[in-house]
Each structure stands twice: as C-alpha cells, then as structure tokens.
C-alpha cells in the first residue's frame, strides 16, 4: 500500500486491508439504499402514515441485537471449551453491539408506541422479553468490570453469557403465557394487516444493511480490543525489562 495514500485516509481506515475497504464500501452503499427505500421507495402505510417507516429500523436493529447476543453466547461457549482469548474478545465485542442495538430498539419502540398506542411501554411479551434480555447483557458487561483477574473475568463472563441466552426462550414463553392471560394486560402488537411486497423488500434490504453494519462495528470493536491488549502486553514487557534490568 502506498504510504502517502495511507496517510491521507481517515483514522479508522488507516492500515485497513482491501477486504475491509470493500466491506466498508458495501455497507455504505447498502445503508444508502436502505435509507432510500425506507423513505422514498416503500409506500406510506394507510393507518400509521409516515411513522410506520420507523418499523424498518426498529425491526432491523432488533435482529442485530439478537444476533449480537447469540454470537456472545456461542463465542462464550467456545471460549470455555478452547480457552482462546480471541473468542472472549468476540463475545464481549458482540455483547456491546447487541446492547447498543437493543437500546435503540427500546427507544424507537417507545417513540413509536407513544404515537400509535398512546403509551411508551406496554407489558407485551415481546417487549418484556427484550427488556429482560437487555438487562441480562448489561449485567454481563457490568460483571466484566467487577472482576480483576483476567482469566476469571473471561470465564465468569462466558458463563453469564451462556446462561443468559439459554433462559431467553423460557423467559419468552413464561411472559407470553402470563401476559396473554392477564386480564388487565392489553396485548398490542405493531403488526399491520400484512406487508406489501415493497415493504417486505425494504425490510429485507434494511436488515441486510444493518447486518453489514454489525460486521463492520464488530471488526472495529475487535481491533480496538486487540490494540488494548497489545498495549497492556507492551506495558507489561517494559515493566518486566525494568525489573530484570
């Protein structure tokens, strides 16, 4: 790579290989396409009007949130089996992105609900489970800050990540059965009478764009984590040399 070209790049792209550049470009194009389709291509929904366009972002971020937590669960299990730090980094990076995206889901859901249902929050099973899931992985990230020993931190975080994800279906079923029965609860779902083909295509394109964004963010977070580890290692070696010297 030409060094003068390298130096002229923005900080995030400095040192990036061809595959990274292709990924970034594809993601940018996909996001632009998603925005175009959300606002210009998809038809306006008859009942909710333009507000319904929030649905594409809401659904896509929810998907990425769940994918993020699934990757944390999987990477945690592999870390426990193999003990490689790489898997722990992946689990943590994915959990951070998952929490950020689920936070967006909760905020967009609240905005949407306020207009459509007249309430920011209802105890709908899906909403409740999503909130519980968010708490589980916020706890996962908090735990990491409370353990000093790196090995113990990685092990315990992996366990919490695994148990948290395994109980999600149980949580969902219990909340679903419970809230569906509860006489006071009003089960409201943001489901229209069915999606038109334009809406469906827009949703799929938005989901694909957000999946690409997840991969980009994951790679960036992983790079950041490995740089932090590298820095710690360099400091450690310097301390070692000083103590030996």
């Amino acid at each position: 790579m030409d060094r003068s070209v390298e130096a002229g790049r923005p900080g995030l792209l400095r040192g990036a290989g061809a595959s990274t550049l292709v990924l970034w470009a594809t993601t940018a194009i996909a996001m632009a396409a998603a925005l175009y389709m959300m606002f210009l291509y998809a038809p306006t929904e008859a009942v909710q009007g333009d507000l319904q366009r929030l649905f594409y972002v809401h659904m896509s971020t929810a998907l990425i949130g769940y994918v993020g937590f699934f990757v944390t669960f999987l990477a945690g299990a592999i870390y426990l089996a193999r003990g490689s730090v790489r898997w722990d980094r992946l689990a943590r990076a994915s959990a951070i992105i998952g929490v950020v995206f689920i936070t967006i889901v909760l905020i967009t859901g609240c905005l949407w609900g306020t207009k459509v249902w007249g309430a920011c929050w209802t105890w709908d099973p899906r909403l409740t489970t999503t909130l519980i899931l968010w708490f589980i992985y916020v706890g996962y990230l908090m735990l990491r800050g409370y353990v000093d020993d790196p090995q113990a931190r990685m092990r315990l975080a992996a366990i919490v990540g695994i148990v948290g994800f395994v109980v999600v279906p149980i949580n969902y079923m219990s909340v679903y059965w419970w809230r569906s029965l509860h006489p006071q609860a009003t089960v409201l779902r943001p489901e229209g009478p069915g999606l038109s083909s334009e809406m469906l295509i827009t949703l799929l394109v938005t989901m694909a764009a957000f999946l690409l964004l997840y991969v980009v963010l994951l790679r960036l977070q992983l790079k950041l984590e490995s740089l932090i580890d590298e820095l710690g290692e360099l400091r450690f070696r310097r301390l070692l040399q000083e103590s030996d010297g």
């Binding site: 899931l133 708490f135 908090m142 735990l143 149980i170 949580n171 079923m173």
Partner: peptide, 18 residues
C-alpha cells in the same frame, strides 16, 4: 468479584423471572 452484593441482584433477577 468486587461489590458482589450489588452485582448478584443485577445478574440473578432477570434470569429468575420465569
């Protein structure tokens, strides 16, 4: 872990809800 008495409700409650 540090501050375990604070952390256990944060970790355990969401899992024990069912």
């Amino acid at each position: 872990v540090r501050a375990r008495e604070l952390l256990i409700p944060v970790l355990l409650l969401p899992v024990a809800l069912p």
